[in-house]
């Protein structure tokens, strides 16, 4: 397969993925916007006024980056896991498997599809946040880099979940029992400086903690973590997850008999 053929195949997968989540926008784009909007109203506005400052910022300002990141993480993950599993469930994944599309193009297409949804919801949430807080981005390149890398990490994780999933229950277990607790304990709503040393150490083991804080650094210019270390962790996760996806695709795990 020549490079231009590969590009057409890649573009086809991405267009198909974007068209899928755009077609069902009431299920994919609106619910996360409403949920995060409620967070802004309840935690940011009503509760936040009583909390006052967090990490040197108004509580609303403090949680906005975390909530944007939360929406990017959840939607990048859920787009890939639900779309890929749905292809498996309907057997339409066979269209791709019998075609000459290389595994890395299949993976890249789904990852970019997941990123597109994560970034679309992230953009909606960012626009909504402007009604609640005055946001001025302190470091645009770090903000963009961390949001892109984070969406890649969770799109890859969603892909692995979809490969192993045999039922619709299997695609909701990880988001419910792993992803949500990690996000909530990842410093979205509080500064890690408030925690006792033991819980501070536990937080340091949570990769989402680094992603949220790096994104917060990009927007507010302040963070609980070392930015270089955070980018290193993101890079390591991408390499490990990408390699795992390629190995699983090559073996045909969850796809071929």
């Amino acid at each position: 397969m020549f490079a231009n053929h590969k590009y057409i195949a890649f573009e086809t997968i991405v267009i198909k993925e974007v068209r899928r989540f755009a077609r069902i926008w009431l299920q994919t784009l609106v619910p996360p916007a409403i949920t995060i909007g409620l967070y802004f109203v309840i935690f940011g506005n009503l509760v936040g006024r009583r909390i006052g400052e967090m990490g040197g910022f108004q509580y609303m300002e403090f949680i906005v980056p975390g909530l944007i990141m939360m929406s990017v993480i959840q939607n990048s993950y859920s787009n890939v896991v639900s779309s890929f599993f749905s292809h498996k469930f309907q057997h339409s994944i066979e269209e791709l498997l019998v075609s000459p599309v290389p595994n890395y193009i299949i993976l890249s297409g789904f990852i970019v599809g997941g990123m597109a949804r994560g970034l679309a919801v992230g953009t909606i949430v960012t626009i909504m946040s402007l009604f609640f807080a005055d946001l001025s981005i302190q470091n645009l390149s770090i903000t963009i880099a961390v949001v892109l890398l984070t969406s890649i990490v969770f799109a890859l994780a969603g892909f692995i979940n979809a490969l192993f999933a045999n039922s619709f229950d299997d695609i909701s277990i990880i988001p419910t029992f792993v992803l949500t607790p990690l996000i909530y304990l990842g410093g979205v709503f509080y500064s890690v400086e408030l925690l006792p040393p033991f819980w501070k150490f536990i937080s340091a083991l949570n990769p989402i903690f680094y992603m949220v804080n790096t994104f917060r650094y990009g927007i507010l210019g302040s963070s609980d973590v070392d930015i270089t270390w955070a980018f290193f962790i993101l890079g390591v996760f991408i390499v490990i997850l990408y390699s795992a996806c390629i190995i699983l695709l090559r073996k045909g795990t969850g796809l071929r008999n």
């Binding site: 053929h5 057409i8 086809t12 075609s99 000459p100």
Partner: peptide, 13 residues
């Protein structure tokens, strides 16, 4: 769309 998508997988312009 089903047929066009398949054509895309085979790299057809």
């Amino acid at each position: 769309d089903i047929v066009m998508t398949q054509a895309g997988y085979y790299g057809l312009p």
